Computed example of a mutant assay.
Amino acid sequence: MKKCIFFLSIGLFLFFSSTAFAQLVLDKREIKIEARPGETVTGSVTVTNRYKQDVTLKAYCEDFVYEPPYRGFKTVRPLGSTPRTCGPWITLTTPMFIVPSKGKQEVMYSVKVPQDAKGGYYGVIFFEKGEGALTAEKGVGIKEKAGCALFLETTNKEKKAKIDKIAVNKDSMEGYISNLGDCVFVAQGSFYIMDSKGIVADRGELQKYYLPAGAEALFSVKVSEKVPSGKHTLMINFDAGEGKALIKEVDFSKDKSGALKILAERD
């Protein structure tokens, strides 16, 4: 399994795909769990110490949330401060431990899911070294931390989303993708434009979105110059995972000046 390192600085997640400069390395970057309400799930995270000396690490949990415009950026929040936290359900068997130089330590965790849980719940397990140092420029305490994000979804979760609010904005079609379910909705988008004869005039990719429950995100499709004047159909497709797709069809016209007009919409 590819190893990844997380550092936390001033409350932000920074994900690195390379560990060339990392000294604390985890064997997994994230944990995904599907559990029944009332179930207890156990697992482990292994920490590797690349320092030339033994290090003392503290293990603890906090919350995280995806931030607008919901393209994968996360911020860390205090434990139990967000409505979809699973941090308080996590028990770590080794909250403080020493990892020998160039050695490894496996830390066990258990997650006790409440009986009334439904949907998605999220947290992060941090492994923190030392008390940190003060930067000369700003006097901000910086601590080295490696973190593993935890995504827990119950078996009775509801994944539901919609595409709506389609509108013309100059040479583009804009709309919103909204999460109507009770867990994070991850969707990768694409589009293509067909003319009245069914010939594809243009195609492209849309942003990948990470929408918390109740959130919405704006997307935009530029109608390029290679799309001729006339009537066309815009096909918007978001891959929602698990073999499911979210599709919107938009009939529109483009006049000789390039002006766009929406004619009809279909789900």
Rank of each mutant, 00 (worst) to 15 (best):
A117N: 00
A117V: 02
K118T: 04
G119M: 07
G119L: 04
G119K: 04
G120K: 02
G120V: 02
G120E: 05
Y121Q: 02
Y122T: 08
V124E: 05
I125E: 01
I125Q: 01
F126V: 00
F127G: 02
K129P: 01
G130M: 03
G130L: 02
E131Y: 00
G132S: 05
G132R: 01
A133F: 15
L134V: 02
L134D: 03
T135G: 13
T135A: 03
T135C: 05
E137D: 11
E137M: 07
E137S: 08
E137N: 04
E137P: 04
E137R: 07
K138M: 08
K138A: 11
G139F: 14
G139A: 10
G139N: 12
V140P: 00
V140M: 03
I142W: 09
I142L: 10
I142S: 07
I142H: 11
K143G: 02
E144P: 00
K145C: 03
A146I: 01
A149Y: 10
F151E: 08
F151L: 07
L152K: 03
E153D: 11
E153I: 04
T154E: 08
T155D: 09
T155G: 04
N156Y: 11
K157R: 10
K157M: 09
E158V: 11
E158H: 05
K159V: 03
K159F: 07
K159E: 12
K160L: 10
K160R: 06
A161G: 13
A161W: 04
K162N: 10
I163A: 05
D164H: 12
D164S: 15
K165N: 15
I166S: 10
A167K: 13
A167W: 14
V168A: 08
N169A: 14
N169F: 13
N169R: 14
N169P: 01
K170T: 14
D171F: 15
S172N: 14
M173D: 08
E174D: 15
E174P: 06
E174G: 13
E174A: 14
G175L: 12
Y176K: 09
Y176M: 10
I177D: 05
I177C: 04
S178W: 11
S178V: 12
S178C: 07
N179S: 14
N179W: 15
N179E: 13
N179P: 11
D182M: 13
D182V: 07
D182W: 11
C183R: 13
V184N: 13
V184F: 15
F185I: 05
F185M: 09
V186D: 11
A187T: 01
A187E: 06
A187G: 12
G189M: 07
S190V: 01
S190D: 07
S190F: 09
S190R: 08
F191A: 06
F191T: 04
Y192C: 08
Y192F: 15
Y192G: 05
I193V: 13
M194N: 12
